[in-house]
C-alpha cells in the first residue's frame, strides 16, 4: 500500500479512539496514579506541602485493626453474598423458566428492585427494619419483643447482606434465565429418553451449559460487593461500632473525615489490588471451566 494511505488510516483510527481514550485517561487513569503517588506522602487534604513517608501508610494499614475489621466485613458481604445471590438467582431462574403470564409476573417482580436506586432501597428497608420501624410495629402489635436489626452488632451485618441480595438477585436471575433459554431443548428430550431424572438432567446438561452465565454473574456480583458502599452507608453508617463498615466506607471516612487523605489513598490502593488480583484469578479459572464444559 502507498505510504500516504497507511498514514491516513492511522490518523482516522487515532481520531476515533482519541475522545474516549483521552477522557478515560484524564478522569480515571491519572487519578489512580495521583492516588498511588499521594499514598507515599502524608497529605491531610488541606496542607499544601507534603513530606515523603515512603511505605509508612501501606505498612500502617496492615497493622490497623480497623482496616482488618473492614476487610473482614467486606469479605463477609462478598463471599456469602456472591454465593447466595448466584444460588438464589439460579433457583429462581429455573422456577420461572416456563411459559405463561404467571412466570412473566414473577419475573417482573424479582427484577423490579434492581431498577431502584440503592439509596432509596436503603431508606425503605431502614424504615422497615429499624428499631421503631414497620416490622417492629407489627411484632409489638402481636405482643412480641421488638428486634433491633440495625442496632445489634450481630444482626446488622446480616440485615445489610439481606438488603443487598434483595436488590440484586432479580438481575442475576434474569441472566441465568437467558442462559437457560439458550440451551437446546432436544438435549433434555434425549436425556429423558435415556431415563435421566430432573436432578441428573440438571447436573449433566443445565449446569454445564450455564457456565458463561455463571462466569458473568459471579464476576459482576463479586466486584460490586467488594466495593459496597451505598446500602450500609445509608442504613447504618457503617455501624454500630464499625460492624457494617466496608472497605469503601472506611476509605472515604479516613480520607475525608479524619484529615488523612494519604492514608486513605493507601487503603484505596489495597482495595484496587485486592479486587484486581482476585478478579483476574477468578475470571481465568471460570473462563477455563467454561471452555472445558462447552467442549
Amino acid at each position: 500500500m502507498p505510504k500516504s494511505r497507511i498514514n491516513q488510516s492511522s490518523l482516522w483510527r487515532v481520531l476515533l479512539v482519541l475522545p474516549g481514550l483521552a477522557i478515560y485517561l484524564a478522569m480515571i487513569i491519572v487519578p489512580i496514579l495521583m492516588c498511588l503517588y499521594l499514598g507515599f506522602f502524608d497529605w491531610n487534604g488541606i496542607r499544601e506541602n507534603l513530606s515523603f513517608v515512603g511505605l509508612d501508610n501501606f505498612w500502617r494499614a496492615i497493622i490497623d485493626r480497623e482496616f482488618q475489621n473492614s476487610l473482614k466485613t467486606t469479605l463477609f458481604f462478598t463471599i456469602p453474598g456472591t454465593l447466595l445471590v448466584n444460588l438464589l438467582g439460579l433457583f429462581l431462574a429455573i422456577l420461572i423458566n416456563r411459559p405463561g403470564w404467571l412466570s412473566k409476573f414473577y419475573r417482573s417482580s424479582f427484577f423490579f428492585p434492581v431498577l431502584i436506586s440503592t439509596v432509596a432501597i436503603g431508606f425503605i428497608w431502614k424504615a422497615l427494619l429499624s428499631y421503631n420501624g414497620m416490622i417492629n410495629v407489627f411484632l409489638v402489635g402481636w405482643n412480641l419483643e421488638a428486634i433491633d436489626f440495625l442496632g445489634s452488632v450481630v444482626l446488622a451485618p446480616w440485615a445489610i447482606l439481606f438488603v443487598n441480595i434483595w436488590h440484586d438477585v432479580g438481575f442475576i436471575a434474569l441472566l441465568y434465565l437467558a442462559g437457560l433459554q439458550a440451551i437446546p431443548k432436544d438435549l433434555y428430550d434425549s436425556a429423558a429418553i435415556d431415563g435421566a431424572n430432573s436432578w441428573q438432567q440438571f447436573r449433566a446438561i443445565t449446569f454445564p451449559w450455564l457456565a458463561p452465565a455463571l462466569t458473568s454473574s459471579v464476576i459482576i456480583i463479586f466486584t460490586a460487593y467488594m466495593r459496597m458502599y451505598d446500602i450500609p452507608f445509608v442504613m447504618t453508617s457503617g455501624g454500630p461500632g464499625g460492624a457494617t463498615q466496608t472497605l469503601a466506607i472506611q476509605t472515604i471516612r479516613v480520607a475525608f473525615n479524619q484529615n488523612q487523605f494519604s492514608y486513605g489513598a493507601s487503603l484505596a490502593m489495597y482495595m484496587l489490588v485486592l479486587i484486581g488480583v482476585i478478579s483476574i484469578v477468578l475470571t481465568h479459572y471460570l473462563r477455563k471451566r467454561e471452555d472445558q464444559l462447552i467442549n
Binding site: M27, I28, V30, M34, A248, A268, L272
Partner: peptide, 24 residues
Amino acid sequence: YIYLLLLLGMMLPVQAILLPIVKI
C-alpha cells in the same frame, strides 16, 4: 495495553479516585 488499562477501570472503587478527580 489499552484493553488492560480499561480493565483496570472496571475494578476500581470510585471512592479511591474522588479527591484527585476533584483536584483535576
